[in-house]
Design a protein around this nucleic acid. Structure first.
Lengths: 341, 341
DNA sequence: GCTGGAATTGATAGCGCTTGCATTGTCCCG
DNA sequence: CGGGACAATGCAAGCGCTATCAATTCCAGC
């Protein structure tokens, strides 16, 4: 449907003002207005003033679809995460959205859910919108990977460090997290750990790292339990119930998220167990609640904001046309000793 | 920067395939391919098949910027919320993103934070991208409102029902929530409530409704405390500490969110108080943790998913060109009696 | 006063798609 | 067997902006 033409008389109230309207009002060419908008300092001060007035007078709002089409830069980035509730990625997204917004870029949210086929769809949607970058927490299957190779923007994998990432990666070593936790708990004198793992690749890798190190240090068998993704508060009830049916109660439960850890503490306390004396609990992610819980939760701090900032820096760098400075940016992690373990 | 031209020979590998490439390969006009893409049933079956093959062969990905420019429908909706962490809106956004994605529409995320001037920026950005709808949880100031009047798409205010919304509203009456909670707690025999309110308009309205009804029913004074926005788990520590310094301890604490309620329960228990016997706690939002906490949290259920679905239905309806069916859609709320109060 | 280079600006050809209108082909019915 | 209705497609004019290239203006330096 073409908007009404009104060639005969100028009735600008009908449709949105365009660059041409502004240009006409300021008696300059559209090119100059465009330049003013994108790079104000190249137009003369007096001209800039006239343009500014014309914009205010017309109430002009640039059409970024048109701009994007012409420049093939959309000023959008697509952020792909599995879900939103109780998500460990929230800090990252929050920072991402805020920092990008202040640079005039917006975030396209893609929820990949648990189904990997959704990831492909979302990537396609993002590519169709010609986003400048795709930032994804999802590990890529071979088919998705092929898709990504054709993506002209920057692909950034976050919250993990695959050894051969498509595009670049900003994250940390999950295996090392697992190892460090194992060492820490063994030093603290725990002997019968229970690993509660969500069925995702990353959590799996942490668990593997844990078991590897635990046994290398002479620890015995490591009990394991599974929870659905995402690992959340509500899962604790079942885990705890199952645990009580075990032949020998674990002395420490290693959780895949602080939410789950919190849940276990609540369950343990409700059952009359003292934490950490009778049951220690360890979390992951250092979300705000970990420091506020009673007892405070021993956990692993991941600087989600920093991940976002590094990703953004990479996008900016990429925009200059330069090749990436690094294929892989390790933001590390920090074990935070608190009361719960 | 114009992409390399390669007029001389056809080297399609250089640039993204376009509609023309597909059309050429399928020996039809671009118009037909476009029609196939947007409304498959208007093209003949045989033609459709050829086009399908051509698309597969070229690996064509439609440029939605171009499409949006031409049709002035971007297939994007902007969702404006204050923040992501511990957010009561997460269910709404989650549902929104999922349902919209399956209809080929994507969500532009806008975090308005606590600063209302950010809201204007985000709305401007959304309008610049010609989104089909703007869905906002933020109450609008007069200036923003003026902006919104000029928005050609559908503006939807969610999680509240102002009497004269710009566009349409999907939500419920916060005042009624306050009233119902007051009545409920008085019936349960509580006498000394403490209202913990986050400093936002909506929470304020709930509190006012509470006080109004509480006193109408012959209840006495209502103690109040303030927390920063967003009302979250970590705030509980301070609130509880302040509370203990009160001349007379409240017998029930009414919280602005389940997260805060959970925090208070944890604090109370850590201090040796039994919940709800010595201190009752009430939440708001019925997030997943409310049912999983020990004790389970009495709260007010808001169907966030339904809010999302109603909003989407309104968008679909709006897309047909028909005027809105209703300016205001009340999704109601439900008081959920559980153990904590 | 002249000249070369820098600073501004204008003209214009697209970017890749949608869509109103025109055209062609098909089929059914009188 | 002609003609109208309908289905399927093609043509081409934009959508509103950016960016290249050329034209113009402005000055400092000689």
């Amino acid at each position: 449907m073409r908007p009404a033409k009104c060639k005969r008389m100028n009735e600008p109230s009908t449709r949105n003002p365009t660059l041409d309207d502004v240009a006409a009002l300021a008696s300059v060419s559209t090119a100059t207005v465009s330049r003013y908008l994108n790079n104000p300092k190249v137009v003369a001060a007096a001209t800039a003033e006239r343009i500014r007035e014309a914009i205010a007078q017309t109430g002009y709002i640039p059409n970024m679809l048109a701009g994007g089409l012409a420049s093939s830069k959309s000023k959008m980035v697509s952020v792909l995460i599995p879900h939103l509730t109780d998500s460990i990625f929230n800090d990252t997204i929050q920072t991402m959205a805020e920092e990008l917004a202040s640079a005039g870029t917006t975030v396209m949210l893609g929820l990949t859910g648990v189904a990997p086929e959704r990831t492909d769809e979302m990537i396609l949607a993002a590519m169709g919108r010609r986003v400048d970058a795709i930032i994804s927490t999802a590990p890529l299957g071979p088919q998705t990977r092929e898709l990504v190779e054709r993506f002209p923007g920057l692909f950034i994998q976050i919250w993990e460090l695959p050894e051969d990432p498509p595009g670049i990666a900003v994250g940390f070593s999950h295996r090392d997290v697992g190892r460090d936790v194992a060492r820490f708990l063994q030093t603290r004198g725990y002997r019968r750990p229970l690993l509660v793992t969500a069925e995702g690749t990353r959590a799996r890798i942490r668990s593997d790292g844990f078991v590897e190190e635990w046994q290398a240090l002479g620890g015995g068998d490591v009990a394991q339990a599974q929870v659905d993704i995402p690992s959340r508060f509500g899962h604790a009830r079942r885990i705890f119930a199952d645990m009580r049916r075990m032949a020998e109660l674990p002395d420490v439960v290693v959780c895949g998220s602080d939410y789950l850890a919190q849940g276990l503490i609540v369950e343990a306390q409700a059952a009359g167990l003292r934490v950490p004396d009778q049951l220690a609990v360890m979390g992951f992610g250092n979300s705000a609640l970990a420091g506020a819980m009673r007892p405070t939760i021993t956990t692993v701090d991941i600087d989600g904001s920093r991940i976002a900032r590094e990703a953004i820096a990479a996008i900016r760098h990429h925009a200059t046309g330069a090749p990436p400075l690094a294929r892989s940016i390790d933001v590390g992690f920090r074990l935070i000793e608190r009361e719960s373990a």
